[in-house]
Simulated scan of single mutants.
Amino acid sequence: MPFPDEIAPVEVLPHRAHWAGDFDLLAAELSAALGPLALAVDHVGSTSVPGLAAKDCVDIQVRVAAPPEPASLAPPLTALGYRLRPEPWNRKELSGGVSCRKLVFAPPVGAAVRHNVHLRAHDGPNARFALLFRDHLRADAAARDAWGAFKTRLVRSAPDLFEYGQIKASATTVLMLAAERWAADTGWRVPPPPARPPTGPASGGVGPGTD
């Protein structure tokens, strides 16, 4: 659930060019804070797909070496003002039939850019899911446009965040069936994290065919 300062009606906007730059600045800050704990920092979600309508909230995935635990990963982020989301669904998610641990952080109060930080194991199916979603829609303009049109229609009838999210989650399952076919046809794979953690603004993607 959102923290009190985050509560607002859901709004889906045409794609904003500044989302990529917002990600770069946030990724650099996160990389510096987490150091070698951050194996990769990925721009994920709809704001990472040029031309795709999205909520004005940048989703950032940080891939770590093992299933994320608050004891080691929360302190560097809470020192920056990030807030660990406490709900059970922000601690575990089902991906490919596998229950995967994760941590989700809300931005500091008053942050200039709305964003969420998702920490996942680098070899987890949930990390792969996020990257495949992004790369498939980057590569397939028809799928991208259809997904954006669906979300734009959905928010008109379901402006409540919970209802919007529940309906979108069911539709995402269908979208990802097409994404898996695309991955099989193209040989798409998630490359391993870079040998050294990033020390400057991140590139915004690690999958093939991105950007």
Rank of each mutant, 00 (worst) to 15 (best):
L154K: 02
L154E: 11
A142K: 09
N126G: 03
V58L: 11
P36V: 13
A130E: 10
P192Y: 03
S99M: 13
S95K: 06
I7V: 14
A53F: 10
T78Y: 01
N116Q: 14
L37C: 13
V104T: 08
H136N: 01
L94S: 11
T47W: 08
P36L: 08
R120V: 09
L94I: 13
T186R: 09
R196G: 06
H136S: 03
P68E: 12
V109N: 11
G204W: 06
A53L: 02
T173C: 08
T172D: 12
P194R: 04
A169Y: 12
S31V: 03
M176R: 05
P159W: 02
P201D: 05
D59H: 04
D185L: 11
R144P: 03
L30A: 05
F162G: 09
P201M: 08
M176W: 10
K151Y: 01
G165C: 07
D59Y: 05
T210K: 01
R83F: 06
K92F: 15
R85D: 14
A130R: 00
A20K: 05
V98F: 03
V98N: 02
V113S: 11
C100I: 12
V44Y: 02
L137M: 12
A17M: 12
D211G: 15
L84E: 13
A38V: 08
P86F: 07
A65C: 04
W147L: 06
E87I: 11
F105H: 03
A40E: 10
F129Y: 15
G45M: 04
A111D: 05
P108Y: 13
P75A: 07
P14E: 12
D24M: 15
S170W: 10
S99Y: 08
A33K: 07
W188K: 04
P75M: 08
S72N: 11
A130M: 10
Y82S: 04
L132D: 02
P88D: 13
L30W: 00
I60T: 09
N116G: 11
D145W: 00
V104R: 01
V58F: 13
H118I: 10
A74K: 05
D22T: 05
N126I: 05
E93P: 06
G21H: 14
F133C: 07
A106Y: 00
P125H: 04
H15Y: 15
L132P: 03
H118L: 10
L77H: 05
C57G: 05
F150T: 10
G187D: 07
T152K: 06
D59F: 09
R101P: 05
R189S: 13
A127D: 02
F129R: 13
P88M: 08
E11N: 01
L177H: 10
A141S: 12
P201K: 07
A130I: 06
D211C: 12
V12C: 00
A139E: 02
H122I: 08
A33F: 11
